[in-house]
Computed example of a mutant assay.
Amino acid sequence: MTMSVPWSCSLTGGSWEHAIIVNVNDCPPLLRWPPGFIKEDTISQEHTTKSDLPSPSLAEDAGYLLARAGGRAISEFNRALQSYGMRRWQYTVLVVAADNGTRSQREIGLLLGIDPSAIVTIVDDLEREGLVRREPHPKDRRTRQIVATSAGRERLAKLRPVATTISEGLLHNLDEAERRTLLDLLLRIAHE
């Protein structure tokens, strides 16, 4: 039995923009959870290789590969968060607010690389749901700190395992040393 799973290579003739086909026996835990995440299909297994790229030179294009991997991660994460009524940026802002409740909206936007107008909307959405609140900054009355509420921390406790599952699924083809190396390199690139 083969299954069509929301992932990130083109599915010809299918209904999803981003999909990869896997054999159910090879599914990492991510692909078995949450319920309803996997759709049955009749298409055979595919794996991406250099010859599958639109152009062989893209195999050496770090920007293309990072964008492709990032797009895959975002797509999968948003899909998993959908049942919680959230998207990736909302989750990420909530994590920062919970881990460090002394950052201003502006600081969070700069830290995460979110446009100032977008961070306002994200914080507004989280605040409307009661997941964060804006508190006066102790040293600057014009600035508000973004702090996770108890409801926000509870939601985050439910979402962290989802994020872990997504990460494990993305990296399931790498051994532990490769995972650590990849994460170390991405950290250097992302926060240079």
Rank of each mutant, 00 (worst) to 15 (best):
P138Y: 14
R155C: 05
A148P: 06
T92E: 14
I189G: 00
G169M: 10
P35K: 14
E40L: 04
D124I: 00
G85E: 11
G85H: 06
I20F: 09
P161H: 05
D115P: 02
L111S: 06
G70L: 08
S44Y: 01
S8F: 13
E17D: 10
S57I: 07
M86S: 08
V95G: 00
I38G: 02
A80H: 14
P116M: 04
A80I: 12
V93Q: 01
G70Q: 10
A59G: 15
I189N: 01
R72V: 00
T2E: 12
W89P: 00
C9P: 00
N23G: 08
A80Q: 12
D125F: 01
L185Q: 15
P6D: 05
L186S: 12
Q82D: 13
L159N: 09
T48R: 08
P6K: 11
G71K: 03
P161N: 06
E40F: 01
G36F: 05
R180D: 07
E127N: 06
S15V: 09
C9V: 14
L65F: 13
S4I: 11
T48C: 14
T2F: 12
L111I: 06
T49N: 07
A19Y: 12
P54E: 03
S117W: 00
S8E: 02
E168V: 01
S44Q: 12
L131G: 03
G130K: 11
L183W: 09
P56S: 12
V5H: 02
E135F: 03
G71W: 06
H137E: 10
A157G: 11
D61F: 15
Y64F: 15
D184I: 09
A177R: 11
D125K: 13
E46V: 13
V132H: 10
V123G: 09
L66P: 01
E60P: 00
W89N: 10
A151R: 13
E178C: 01
S10M: 04
R68N: 09
Y64L: 05
H18Y: 15
R160K: 14
E178I: 02
V162S: 08
A148F: 13
P136K: 10
G13E: 08
E176G: 07
Q145L: 15
Y64D: 04
E127R: 07
A97R: 15
E178F: 02
C9N: 02
L66C: 10
E176T: 15
Y84L: 07
G85C: 05
T42Y: 12
G63I: 13
R87T: 06
P136V: 09
E107T: 04
P35W: 03
H172W: 11
R68D: 14
L58K: 09
H137P: 04
L30H: 06
R144V: 00
R180H: 12
L183I: 15
G71R: 04
